[in-house]
Design a protein around this nucleic acid. Sequence first.
DNA 1: ATGAGTGCAAAGTATTTGCACGTAC
DNA 2: GTACGTGCAAATACTTTGCACTCAT
Lengths: 151, 151
Amino acid sequence: MSVNLREIKREFTKFLKRNNMKVTQSRLNLIDLIAGYGKHFEVEELVNWIASKSDRSVSRSTIYRTIKLLQEFGVIKEVIKLNNRTIYEFVAGKAHHDHLVCVECGKIIEFVNEDIEKLQDEVCEDYNFQPMHHRLEIFGVCSECSKSGVT
Amino acid sequence: MSVNLREIKREFTKFLKRNNMKVTQSRLNLIDLIAGYGKHFEVEELVNWIASKSDRSVSRSTIYRTIKLLQEFGVIKEVIKLNNRTIYEFVAGKAHHDHLVCVECGKIIEFVNEDIEKLQDEVCEDYNFQPMHHRLEIFGVCSECSKSGVT
DNA sequence: ATGAGTGCAAAGTATTTGCACGTAC
DNA sequence: GTACGTGCAAATACTTTGCACTCAT
């Protein structure tokens, strides 16, 4: 499924105006770039990838600053926190999902489970807690690694 | 429920010997200290708290090094990763649980939900993924903060 | 006696920030 | 024209590491 980037940028533009922020090339470009990267990413990785493309450069600082905005706007999420690494994902147009993380090869598997979501909502109700977002990371060994590795 | 620290230290001693590591005062003390601290903690917090106690000092380096061992041994877990903070918990003797984190006041609420655990196992089976551990963080606003704050 | 553990200070990462300059409005 | 955004380099925060000394075995 490919999302409509034009639509996202139009909405992001509204979001920026609504918050009295400026609609800059960097900000709009970053949406294209992150969407173009097309997979889970870390900032360092993204910085290097963007630098490797001749056009539309965006500095590390602006990337950090814009990622925060895009998180507020809701198209990017911090999906994995492993050791001191932060792995982000462009989630626009995707159903909410959680992740299996292979500690051997680093592979990230996305899964959707409505029942888990429902149970979480129930827990929150029990505690009168208003959930904003959540992160479920299951760390383990993927099928390929458990096949090959004896460990 | 209060855990039997003596028993934990005895087991940790075995663990160290099994791994050809030395059973030092620092390592055993840290178990007492962390258990004595009695709540979720960050390293900086723990360092300061330990420094404030006159006896049994343990350096920051050793704390970091020992926390890793205690995680392997299984009595400590990284339960929350928020921004660039890592919050640990002494989990020995506690049933597995997950956390609600109030983004307003920082309060951490523990909850247990067997059904969520079961569903996670099912997901892992579906993907032939061998789970080792997981972390479920639900971020939101606790009952007290939603009462008081208009935001 | 010996090698692993400890504490310190230095180095390494990841992220944030001050400031001068550029650009959207 | 003005204020916000950007890029750079410096600063910060957290964690790891090299090394000399200490302690468990």
